[in-house]
């Protein structure tokens, strides 16, 4: 435990640099609490970011920003489900950060295996990610949350601020379109 954390436990508050940390009621500092959340949420958020953006560079950037914003709002986030809070932050981030780097959405990575496997190799993950990128953003968010990350319709509705009916109808349309896209690509390859 750092010196700063010891002070937090003893006095309920400590100062680190120009910020004030408030200790939680059980003596665990918010920073410790957030660290635990970080460990649990890092990979799930990255998966969501990658599936939404199709680009590992942007996905890491988005997850970093998601954690930063969640930490900034940690007092509010920790009152409910921090994971749901962070997912909502992430779902709304992408618009703000469109093309922050010079990477284009549609030039997402293709896997190393495709190189070593020879020309015209097709990777299943990448094909699906590219198919996802053809969906409108709102459809993509719902497909990713509902069908790929397996949240319930009610959870998706709550996190995206839409009705359950919208989740159902949008997911249905999006999955049909995704199937068509993948079927077309698969047929052309065979």
């Amino acid at each position: 435990m750092s010196g700063a954390e010891s002070v937090a436990s003893a006095q309920g508050a400590f100062v680190t640099g120009d910020e004030i940390e408030i200790a939680a009621a059980d003596g665990v500092s918010h920073e410790q609490e957030f660290a635990e959340f970080f460990r649990a949420a890092r990979d799930p958020l990255y998966r969501m970011a990658y599936l939404l953006s199709g680009d590992p560079h942007r996905a890491e950037d988005l997850v970093q920003q998601t954690f930063e914003r969640t930490w900034r709002s940690w007092r509010s986030a920790r009152r409910g489900d921090p994971m749901a809070w962070a997912r909502r932050v992430l779902a709304n981030l992408r618009i703000d950060t469109w093309r922050r780097t010079r990477r284009e959405v549609l030039t997402g990575h293709t896997p190393e295996g495709a190189v070593d496997g020879g020309e015209r190799a097709v990777d299943g993950r990448d094909a699906i990610v590219r198919a996802l990128l053809t969906l409108p953003v709102r459809q993509r968010r719902i497909v990713v949350l509902r069908h790929l990350l397996e949240l319930s319709e009610a959870e998706v509705a709550a996190e995206l601020g839409v009705s359950v009916g919208t989740v159902k109808s949008t997911a249905s349309r999006a999955m049909a379109r995704l199937r068509d896209t993948l079927d077309t690509a698969g047929g052309a390859r065979s």
């Binding site: 680190t16 640099g17 120009d18 910020e19 920073e31 957030f34 660290a35 970080f38 460990r39 890092r42 990979d43 958020l45 990255y46 998966r47 990658y50 996905a59 890491e60 997850v63 970093q64 954690f67 930063e68 930490w71 900034r72």
Partner: peptide, 18 residues
Amino acid sequence: LHSTLDFDTVLAGSKRAR
């Protein structure tokens, strides 16, 4: 799929003091 972010980086990016 795994993120390579580490906590210190996130917190460092989040704290002006650092």
